[in-house]
């Protein structure tokens, strides 16, 4: 949960100062900050439970193969269509995952999920509206959104493969996810690919795409070059 939030937060922050409109720029930066805040909670809890020295150490002093984020979130921004489609697919999954974790028996896990869910409810609303507006938009925007969906669809399956160390049975989240995604895609006049092929290896860390290492190099360069730097 923490690594996916961290990687997507870093990806979104790459838009800062570059988004197609001032209002979108601020919105993406806000969502990035929400995700980094959630990262602090999840990785902070992981550190408390013995995974590392601190949330910062986990974020800045691990290499790609030690990251357990979904492959979807490490995919590059490319254009605004890919960025928003990636956001929409992740938000739709994130919402269901946090809803399930809000009822988790571990009080810390449940508290983080409940707090995050308020933010993610808004993230999902915003990305859903954007997918509909751009899908059911101009010829150009529709073509770009369909292209983004085709490109990212092979990364959807991994979100629903339950591993032994998952906090909840993520496979069980798929029907609710699909209901939201398909009703949104219908409204957006977009067509979900029929192939169920799913890239995997991000959540387990064994096979990240080539993009994660480059992203981490940028994200981690300062604390690794100046290990004693303080804020």
């Amino acid at each position: 949960m923490g690594d996916s939030a961290l990687v997507l937060g870093q990806r979104l922050s790459e838009w800062c100062g570059h988004a197609p409109a001032l209002e979108e720029d601020i919105a993406l930066a806000n969502i990035a900050l929400d995700l980094i805040g959630q990262t602090q909670l999840w990785l902070g809890l992981a550190a408390e439970r013995g995974a590392g020295a601190s949330a910062d150490a986990l974020a800045f002093h691990r290499d790609a193969w030690d990251f357990h984020n979904l492959l979807l979130v490490e995919q590059p921004n490319r254009d605004f269509a890919v960025t928003m489609m990636r956001q929409f697919l992740f938000d739709a999954w994130h919402f269901e995952a946090l809803t399930a974790l809000a009822a988790h028996e571990d009080a810390d896990v449940s508290a983080i999920a409940q707090k995050s869910l308020k933010e993610v409810t808004y993230h999902r609303e915003r990305s859903t509206d954007t997918v509909i507006a751009l899908g059911d938009g101009t010829e150009e925007s529709r073509a770009r959104m369909q292209g983004a969906l085709d490109r990212l669809w092979p990364y959807v399956g991994e979100m629903f493969i339950t591993d032994a160390d998952d906090l909840t049975d993520v496979a069980a989240l798929r029907p609710s996810f699909e209901a939201h995604v398909h009703s949104t895609l219908d409204a957006a006049t977009l067509i979900a690919p029929t192939s169920d092929f799913a890239h995997q290896g991000g959540k387990t860390g064994v096979r990240h795409t080539e993009h994660l290492g480059h992203m981490l190099a940028v994200m981690q360069s300062l604390p690794r070059s100046y290990p004693d730097a303080t804020w």
């Binding site: 209002e23 601020i26 919105a27 806000n30 808004y122 609303e125 915003r126 509206d129 507006a133």
Partner: peptide, 11 residues
């Protein structure tokens, strides 16, 4: 207008 509400929330 709906988009304006969302943007206002963020800005």
């Amino acid at each position: 207008a709906a988009h304006a509400i969302q943007n206002a929330r963020d800005v």
